[in-house]
Design a protein around this nucleic acid. Structure first.
Length: 460
DNA sequence: GTAGGGTTAG
């Protein structure tokens, strides 16, 4: 009688622990185990597995390990699920050697790895951009005749796409289908994403049709993937059509899609529409996070409404949201655009005091603002004093020099940019060459042209 | 335990 009661209590405790873990209240969950033991309710392997999985997911693998030790001390043997959770934790934090150690430990304890142990290990190799090793894990699964899970193919296809083997993923998909494999919606989404990223938007859209024909209903993930693809290919209206469809079908339940669209609109100078959508998420009670706020602050900065931008920052902080490096970079850019360099400099100094890394983007914004306001010498001084420069830095200063008619100086910097292996803007090159020509340096213009060509070949 | 998506500069 007592033993049945005890088992029931353990089961009840496990349910409570699972719900605490779901709510990320891990210390409370651990406390419940201690309390349970005190009143005679013994935790079992499920109890510990639940807590280990939650720690690995939420905090990290080390606390997961310490629960494993406590579990062993309590005389409860870990099983394949315990180890799978730890392997998943190690994969989450890209700790390959821990994954492999766990695999060995499992085998030493005569716990047989299952399909999820292999799936996760394969995923770990892919995440670390080791597709050959990942594929070897897949071959191992086949060799050991372990029955596959649909997710195995998804992980394999996703890994291939992310590692630049979209074509192979596509071939695999087709060959699997010929062998009677039924792709899931996830499978289609993976492939569509891979195709979009590798610039094959047209094939991606064919798959969108195919998945519908196969009886699947596209979800929010499918839509955002294709929408983003349209924006990347500068098919703005088509992307906006997809967004409208998402809204109609109720897939815009959070601020994500709105922010994706708004940032595209801001970048392309469509301020009114950006204003409309960002206004919509403010007034319609969407749960706004730091990134959403950053988008709105960026809108205000772009419109020169710095007061509103700061007011919003204050509001976000009052809500308990922390500003990040984007927030401050956006504000510095806004200050520079309005010619407020003194405050921008103060904000920049403040950023390093707040512990943000040196910020190349903010410095580029600064140089851009200085050039636009005609403070070219200040911009050049800043340019010279920078430790790291990228193609943005060069294109900004080259543009500034050309605007001031200093084409020879501009051509020198353009050349050092391309010699450093960085890409240059076509517009930059054209302005420098035509500027040199029109100011009587045709010979130099030709020389610069051939030097750029040579540098590009050398870096190819 | 497998898929997507938002924020900064030329």
């Amino acid at each position: 009688m007592w033993s049945i009661k005890n088992k029931l209590s353990t089961r009840l405790m496990n349910i409570c622990i699972a719900s605490l873990c779901k709510a990320k209240q891990l210390e409370k969950a651990e406390g419940l185990i201690v309390d349970g033991i005190r009143i005679g309710v013994q935790p079992d392997v499920v109890t510990y597995n639940t807590v280990i999985a939650a720690y690995c997911r939420v905090v990290g693998i080390d606390p997961g390990y310490s629960i494993l030790h406590r579990m062993k001390e309590a005389g409860i043997n870990p099983d394949v699920i315990t180890y799978n959770s730890l392997i998943a934790g190690a994969t989450r934090y890209c700790m390959l050697s821990r994954c492999l150690d766990l695999f060995d430990e499992m085998l030493e304890m005569s716990i047989l790895p299952d399909i999820w142990s292999y799936n996760t290990l394969m995923h770990c190799f892919f995440k670390l951009r080791k597709p050959d090793e990942a594929y070897r894990v897949f071959q191992d699964i086949i060799l050991k005749d372990i029955s596959l899970h649909p997710a195995t193919f998804n992980i394999l296809m996703n890994g291939l796409c992310k590692n630049g083997y979209t074509e192979n993923a596509l071939m695999l998909f087709r060959s699997l289908k010929r062998h009677g494999f039924t792709p899931q919606l996830v499978t289609y989404n993976i492939l569509i994403h891979g195709l979009c990223k590798s610039g094959r938007g047209k094939t991606a859209k064919e798959f969108l049709n195919e998945l519908v024909e196969a009886g699947h209903i596209p979800n929010a993930i499918t839509y955002t993937t294709v929408m983003k693809c349209c924006f990347r290919c500068r098919q703005f209206e088509e992307g906006l059509k997809i967004f409208a469809e998402m809204r109609r079908k109720g897939y815009t339940y959070d601020a994500f899609a709105y922010c994706t669209v708004a940032s595209m609109l801001l970048k392309t100078g469509r301020m009114n529409e950006a204003n409309e959508y960002l206004g919509y998420i403010i007034t319609n009670g969407f749960d706004l996070d730091t990134v959403s706020f950053n988008n709105i602050i960026n809108l205000y900065c772009k419109e020169g409404q710095l007061d509103n931008a700061y007011k919003l920052l204050y509001e976000a902080e009052k809500k308990g949201l922390e500003s990040d490096k984007y927030t401050h970079t956006i504000l510095i850019d806004g200050l520079c655009r309005t010619g407020n360099f003194k405050e921008a400099q103060q904000h920049l100094d403040c950023m390093s005091m707040m512990g943000f890394d040196s910020n190349l983007v903010a410095l580029n914004s600064f140089i851009n603002g200085l050039c636009k306001a005609g403070h070219l010498d200040h911009a050049l001084w800043m340019f010279e004093s920078m430790d790291a420069k990228d193609s943005f830095t060069y294109s900004t200063i080259v543009h500034g020099l050309c605007k001031a008619g200093r084409f020879r100086a501009a051509s020198k910097l353009l050349l050092s940019c391309v010699r450093g292996g960085m890409r240059i803007l076509k517009s930059n090159k054209c302005v420098v060459i035509s500027g040199l020509r029109s100011s009587g340096f045709s010979h130099e213009a030709r020389k610069v042209q051939s030097k750029i060509r040579l540098a590009k070949i050398l870096h190819y």
